Simulated scan of single mutants.
Amino acid sequence: MATGSVNAKSQKIHARVSHEIIANVELAKNEGESTSQFVVTALQGEIKRRQKEKSKPDESKG
Rank of each mutant, 00 (worst) to 15 (best):
K9Y: 06
Q37R: 06
K56A: 15
S10P: 00
E46Q: 07
E20R: 12
K9Q: 12
A2D: 04
I47K: 14
V25S: 05
N7G: 05
M1V: 10
I22F: 11
K29T: 04
T35R: 10
A23M: 02
V25P: 12
P57C: 13
Q37D: 09
T41P: 00
G4F: 11
E31R: 06
T3P: 00
K48T: 04
K48W: 03
I13E: 13
A2N: 01
K9V: 08
V17W: 01
K54G: 05
S10E: 01
A28K: 04
R16L: 08
A23E: 11
G62V: 03
E31V: 06
V40T: 14
A28V: 02
K52C: 12
K12G: 01
I47D: 09
Q37E: 15
S60V: 02
G45A: 15
V39G: 07
E46S: 02
T35S: 02
K52S: 13
V25F: 10
A42Y: 03
N7Y: 03
Q51V: 04
S5K: 11
D58M: 03
R49M: 08
S36K: 10
S5M: 13
E59Q: 15
Q37H: 01
K61F: 05
P57Q: 14
S55M: 08
E31S: 13
V6S: 02
D58S: 10
R16T: 08
S34I: 02
Q51K: 10
K12N: 02
T41V: 07
I47A: 13
N30Y: 09
E33N: 10
N7S: 08
I13L: 15
R16P: 04
A15D: 09
M1H: 05
N7R: 05
N30D: 11
S60P: 00
S60Q: 04
G4C: 05
K54F: 13
I47G: 03
R50H: 14
D58G: 07
A28I: 01
N24P: 00
V25W: 06
N30M: 12
G62M: 02
S55N: 03
I47W: 08
A2F: 03
P57H: 15
M1T: 11
A2Q: 07
K56D: 15
N30T: 06
A8Y: 07
E59S: 15
A8L: 05
Q44L: 08
V17L: 09
E26I: 14
S55G: 01
I21Q: 03
H14W: 09
I22L: 14
I47C: 13
S34N: 00
K9G: 13
L43S: 06
E26A: 09
G4R: 05
K29N: 06
Q51R: 10
K61Q: 12
N24L: 08
G62Q: 07
E33C: 02
H14F: 15
E31Y: 03
A28G: 01
R49Q: 08
H19G: 13
K12A: 02
K61H: 07
T3I: 00
N24C: 06
N30H: 13
E33F: 05
E20Y: 07
H19A: 14
K54W: 07
E31Q: 10
F38L: 11
S55C: 03
V39F: 10
L27W: 05
E59C: 09
